[in-house]
Design a protein around this nucleic acid. Sequence first.
DNA 1: TGGTGTTACGGAGACGTTTCAGCAACCTCA
DNA 2: TGAGGTTGCTGAAACGTCTCCGTAACACCA
Lengths: 347, 347
Amino acid sequence: MAKVTRDDVARLAGTSTAVVSYVINNGPRPVAPATRERVLAAIKELGYRPDRVAQAMASRRTDLIGMIVPDARQPFFAEMAHAVEQAAAERGKMVLVGNSDYRDEREVHYLRAFLGMRVSGLILVSQGPSERAAAEIEAWDARVVLLHERPEAIDDVAVVTDDVGGAQLATRHLLEHGNDYVACLGGTESTPVVGDPVADHIEGWRRAMQEAGLTTEGRLFHAPYNRYDAYRVALGLLAGPDRPPAIFCSTDDQAIGVLRAARELRIDVPGELAVAGFDDVKEAGLTDPPLTTVFSDRPAMARAAVDLVLDDSLRVSGSRRERLKQFPSALVVRRSCGCGEPPATAR
Amino acid sequence: MAKVTRDDVARLAGTSTAVVSYVINNGPRPVAPATRERVLAAIKELGYRPDRVAQAMASRRTDLIGMIVPDARQPFFAEMAHAVEQAAAERGKMVLVGNSDYRDEREVHYLRAFLGMRVSGLILVSQGPSERAAAEIEAWDARVVLLHERPEAIDDVAVVTDDVGGAQLATRHLLEHGNDYVACLGGTESTPVVGDPVADHIEGWRRAMQEAGLTTEGRLFHAPYNRYDAYRVALGLLAGPDRPPAIFCSTDDQAIGVLRAARELRIDVPGELAVAGFDDVKEAGLTDPPLTTVFSDRPAMARAAVDLVLDDSLRVSGSRRERLKQFPSALVVRRSCGCGEPPATAR
DNA sequence: TGGTGTTACGGAGACGTTTCAGCAACCTCA
DNA sequence: TGAGGTTGCTGAAACGTCTCCGTAACACCA
C-alpha cells in the first residue's frame, strides 16, 4: 500500500499542492472556503496524514521539546517530566525525555540526538551540564531552559523554586518543635557547591541553624538522592552514638529512606526523631508517618519552562539574576515533624 | 552562524557529497582509506553534525522506537521504560516514551505522532489498545510489539511474563503458610477479562485456590493499580469484619498501599496479615516488611521486545500462541508472607 | 474604460540527506 | 595486449513538505 502524499490529495481535490499545505497549516495564505472543503474531503477520503519528517525538513522546525532528566524512575523527576508533558501538550507540543543516568556522556548523547532532531527547545534538569554539553548547546545555539537547577556552566534562563528559603522554613520548623539541633542529609560530596538545589537546601539549613545560634559543624551528612542509598546511610547514622534529634533531608526520596531506616531500628518518628524532606512528592502523603516537607509547584514551573523555551519574547537578556524565574516554596506540615494528632486508629 | 552541511564538508575534503555520506554511514559503497581520513578531518574541523531530520527524510527510516505506557510515574512502568531504553541503546536506537494516562485518545495521539515521525517500531504497554488505535496501526502497517499485555484487539507479537503461573506460585505460597484462604486484590472492574496481566493474576490466584479446594467467591476485590487507591480500598477492606488472613495483590504498587493501610490500622504484617505482590519492583525490597512478590525479568523482556520490533526475521507469522513470547516468573520470598527471621534489630 | 487593489491559486525552488547509476582508471590474466 | 573485473568516486534524482513569488481573475472607483 503506497503512502498517501500531499500530491495525491491535490490531485483528488483538483488543486495545487500548495493549497493543500495552506489548508493543513491554516496559512500562510488564505484559501477559499469551497476549496478548503474539497481539500478536507480529499484528505479524509484518502486517509492522508502529513509526514512529520518532511514537514520538519521543509519548515525547519518541529513540535518537539527535548527534556533531559537524571533518572525518570525517581518520583520527583517522573512527576516533573509528567508536568512538563502536560504543559507542552497544552501548547500542542510533544516532549521527548531522555535519562542521563547522571552521566555526562549520556547527557551529551541526548543533547546531540535532540538537537539533531531539530527540537524547538530543550529543558534541562541537570546536575550542572558538563562543559561538553555546554559546547554542544553553543554549537547549535539552541533554546535552552534550565529547570530545577541553575548551574554556572550554561548561561541561560533557569526556572527554580526558592530552595534556600524552603529549606530554611523546614529547618526552622523542626527547631521550633524543641529539637536541640537539626542534622542535614545532603547529596553526595561531589554535588556542586552552587547552582544545585541541594546545595541551596544545605545553605537554607545552615542559615536557619545560624539564626538559632547553632553550629552546623559535623551535622551535615551525605547520601545519593535516592531512597535506597539514603536508607543505607541513615542506618549507620541513626544507629550510631550521637543520633540527631531531627533530620532535614534535601530530598523527599531521601527522607523516605530515612523513615524506613528509623523503622528498621525501632526509632519512633516523630517521637524520637523528627524528619522533614523537600519537594512534596506525591508519595510524601502516604509515608508513615506522613512526611512534612516543602512544596514546590511543579505544574507552574513546568508551564513556565515550556513558555520560556517556546517564546523568544520571554527570554529577556538581562543579568543572571533577572533571567532566573523563581517560584516561592511553602512548608507542608504533616506528621513526621511532630505536628498533629496521631490518627484515630493509632490510638 | 550558518549551519554546516554535508556540502561544506565535501568542499573542504575535496570530494563529492556522496563520499561524505559513505564515510558517515560506512557504506553502502567503499571509500579509500586516504579519502576517508580527509573527510573525517573535514568533519572534525567544521564540527559537522548530520541533520537527523534530513537523514530520516532521505533514508525513510529513523533510529527511533516509540513506546507508550499508561503512566510512567508508576514505578513498574518507569522501570520498564528504563529497561527498554537500555535495550534500545545497546542497539543504537533511541526510545520515545509517551504516557497515555489510561486514555484512548492520548494513546491514539501518541501513536499518530510516533508513526508520523517514522519510528522504526512501536512498543505498546497498553491496557488493550482501542479500536481506533488498532486502526491507526493498521493504516501505517507499523511494526508493533505488545509488552506486558496481550490484548485481543491487535493481532501482533507480544512479550509477557508467565502471569498465571506466577500468581499461582504466590497464592500457593501464601496458602502454605497456613492461611485459611487468600483474598485477591485485582484491578478495577473494567479490567478486560482476558489479555491483561492482572486478569491473568486473578486467574492464577483462582487456580491456586481451587487446587486447595477453596472458593474464590466474594474474595476478589478491586482497586486501581496505584498505591494510593489501593491504600484507600485496603483501609476499608482491612477494617471490616471479615478481614482476610492473606492478600495477594496483582501489583506491587497495590501491595505497597495495602501494607501502608495495615500499618495505619495497626495490623501486623505478616503476623496478622500475609501479603504478596507481583512484579518485583525495586521498591519491594525496601517496604516494611520487605515484600514477597513475583519476579518478572524486565531487562530480558525489554530486550526481547526491542529485538522483535527491530528484526523482521524474528516475527514469525504463526498462530497467536506462537507469536507470544513468554518469560518464566519466579517467586521472590521476602518477609511479608511470613517467611524468614525478623531482622536482628527488630528484636 | 483604465487603473488600482484584493483575493485565490499555482509553479517551483528550497530543505540536507541517501543512494543509484555511471564512469574513469587501474588491475589481472590468458 | 586486450577483454573483463575491481575499485573509488561523482552527478543527480529522489524523499514529502513549506513557502516565496508570480499571475490571473475580479471588483471597485474615478
